[in-house]
Every structure is written in structure tokens, then in C-alpha cells.
């Protein structure tokens, strides 16, 4: 019976088999792409992370967990906290960057949502314009802004928090400045789309039910913006953990993050096995962090 093999798919009469074949035809390029360029290299990285570096930087296929021991600080000269400090700093910088971006994004999103519809597009464009420029060029642009002759440095000198005639970089301040400006739109845009679709009658209901301002935000606004916020947090926190251009340029050699460490292993140090181990460490840390975020964001207590 041909009837059993037929189905109506959103108004189109097709054979089930035909539909399945069409689906896999559309899907396979993407799957192959991910397989060849993400899954396989990832697996290679896992294997490499257990090998050893040869005398000339080549990979020696001798398997051990030495690279992971090194990662948590056990080196040839005994234990040192250097690597763990770098990892901790990376988590901290990513966390602070995400937090600042969230704090800035709420007012910005509400501001844009409250513009007349035509103006909104303009403001969103302003927000995205920096992305039309290369990331490295943008980092160099900060050099100019943070130069000793510029108002920002002069203000710092005037306030007595910075010595005269020196640029404001390299410093952790410069790194945060660069990081936040780099990732701000990744939080603002998803948050904006959540806020744009927000049901304001819930805000009115909370007001009507005697809620304080904090309570109105926590119960009527925050839960509605959570999907956008989560997208923004993931889009910011994950790449911020592995960022190396900004800390390299604006943080100097003392402000090393995991990203720089990995780049160093694959670059100047020619120690691919150790670089692979650090990368694995970063992947695991990112997953743990996101898991923590998922749990914490569910647990937020009503105020």
C-alpha cells in the first residue's frame, strides 16, 4: 500500500522515505564539517595531551599523564603555583568581564527598547559597529586612548592614582576595559531581544502587589530576561576564558591568562603535548563553570 508510505508534511504530500533522504542530504554537509574540523581535531588533541615533547619540539608517542601533572604545578623544579594562578586568573577575569558586561547591558537594553522603533535599529547598529573592525586593530586602538597624552591618563594622574607620562597599559584595568568592550554586544544583544519581548503586565502586577523596586526586578523582570541573559553569559564567559589577544596586548607579560599560555606552547615553546593538556583543562573548566551557572541561576531565591 503506497498510502502507508505517504505523509503530508506542512501541506506537502511526500513519501516518508523521500522526506528522510532529503533531510539527511541537507544535514550531512554540516555534520561532515563539524566532524572533520571540530570533533576529529578535538580527539587528536586528547591523544596528543598524553604524549611527550621531543628534544626538537616534535611529538614523542610515549603516553603518560605528565602534562596534566605539569598543568597543576608539578615541574622539574618541584611544585609551583604559577600555572594554577594563571588558570585562576583566567576564570576570575572571565567572571568579572561577564559580570561588568551584564551590569552595563541591562540599562543599555532598556534604553534601546524604550526608543521609538526606527531609532532602535540605529542604536543597535552603534552597538555593533566596533565589530566591523578587526579585533587586533581594536586592541591597538586602546593604546591610543590609553596613551599618556590622552584625557583618560591625564585624569588618572590628576586623581593621583597613576604616575605621569606613562600610558595606562599594560595593566589589569586596560585588560578589563578591552575585554568588556570586546564582549559587551554578546550580552547586550540577546538581553535586548529578551527585554523587547517582555510582558510588562507582569511588572505592573508586581507593582500592584506592593513589590519594592528590587522585588519588581527580581520577580517580574529578571525571570523574563533569563533566556537572553544565559545566551549572553555563555557567549561571553566561554571565549573570555580562552582570550589571548587582549591580555597579550593590554596586559603585558605579567598578566598571563590560559589563552596566552596555550598560545605560547603551540608557538614559541613548541610544546604541543603540554599545550593540548592545557586546552583540555580549559574545556573541562568551561564546562564546570557553565554547570555552576546553570545550577545557581535556578536557585535564585525570591526576594
Amino acid at each position: 500500500m503506497i498510502r502507508n508510505r505517504l505523509t503530508v508534511w506542512y501541506g506537502e504530500l511526500v513519501l516518508r522515505k523521500q522526506l528522510a533522504r532529503r533531510g539527511s542530504a541537507f544535514l550531512s554537509p554540516g555534520i561532515l564539517w563539524l566532524l572533520a574540523l571540530l570533533v576529529l581535531p578535538g580527539l587528536v588533541l586528547v591523544v596528543v595531551s598524553f604524549t611527550e615533547r621531543g628534544a626538537y619540539g616534535q611529538i614523542e608517542w610515549l603516553f603518560s599523564v605528565d602534562n596534566y601533572k605539569r598543568l597543576i604545578g608539578f615541574g622539574m623544579l618541584g611544585w609551583s603555583a604559577d600555572n594554577l594562578a594563571i588558570i585562576w586568573r583566567s576564570i576570575w577575569v572571565a567572571f568579572v568581564t561577564t559580570l561588568i558586561a551584564i551590569l552595563l547591558s541591562y540599562p543599555i537594553s532598556f534604553f534601546i527598547v524604550n526608543r521609538p522603533p526606527r531609532q532602535r535599529f540605529l542604536w543597535l547598529t552603534v552597538l555593533i559597529v566596533p565589530f566591523w573592525t578587526n579585533m587586533v586593530i581594536r586592541a591597538y586602538a586602546w593604546f591610543l586612548i590609553l596613551a599618556p597624552e590622552m584625557p583618560l591618563a591625564k585624569l588618572a594622574v590628576y586623581l593621583g592614582i597613576h604616575p605621569a607620562n606613562t600610558p595606562l597599559y599594560p595593566s589589569s584595568f586596560a585588560v578589563y576595559l578591552g575585554m568588556v568592550s570586546m564582549f559587551l554586544p554578546f550580552v547586550t544583544l540577546p538581553l535586548y531581544s529578551s527585554i523587547e519581548r517582555m510582558d510588562w503586565s507582569l511588572v505592573e502586577a508586581a507593582q500592584d502587589l506592593y513589590a519594592s523596586r528590587v522585588r519588581v526586578f527580581m520577580q517580574a523582570i529578571f525571570p523574563q530576561t533569563k533566556p537572553g541573559l544565559t545566551a549572553g553569559v555563555i557567549l561571553t564567559f566561554v571565549p573570555a576564558m580562552g582570550m589571548f589577544v587582549v591580555p597579550d596586548l593590554l596586559g603585558g607579560s605579567k598578566f598571563m591568562l590560559v589563552g596566552n599560555l596555550i598560545q605560547q606552547q603551540f608557538g614559541s615553546s613548541r610544546d604541543w603535548p603540554f599545550g593540548a593538556a592545557i586546552s583540555m583543562g580549559l574545556v573541562v573548566l568551561t564546562m564546570i563553570s557553565l554547570q555552576i551557572y546553570r545550577k545557581k541561576s535556578k536557585e535564585i531565591e525570591p526576594i
Partner: peptide, 29 residues
């Protein structure tokens, strides 16, 4: 302000808090 008035509203859309249980919705005020 609305949150200082001893007046309560049943909204057209009901405006129930979707993340709160029935009990917590009623307990809100």
C-alpha cells in the same frame, strides 16, 4: 505609587508570574 495603594487588580491577561507556583503567586502581595 501603585505599590502603596491599597487597591488590587485582576489583569485582563491575568499576569500570573510564570516561574512561581499558584501558592507563591497568591502569596506575592
Amino acid at each position: 505609587p501603585a505599590n502603596k495603594r491599597h487597591v488590587n487588580t485582576v489583569f485582563q491577561s491575568y499576569a500570573l508570574f510564570p516561574h512561581l507556583t499558584v501558592f507563591e503567586n497568591v502569596a506575592f502581595g
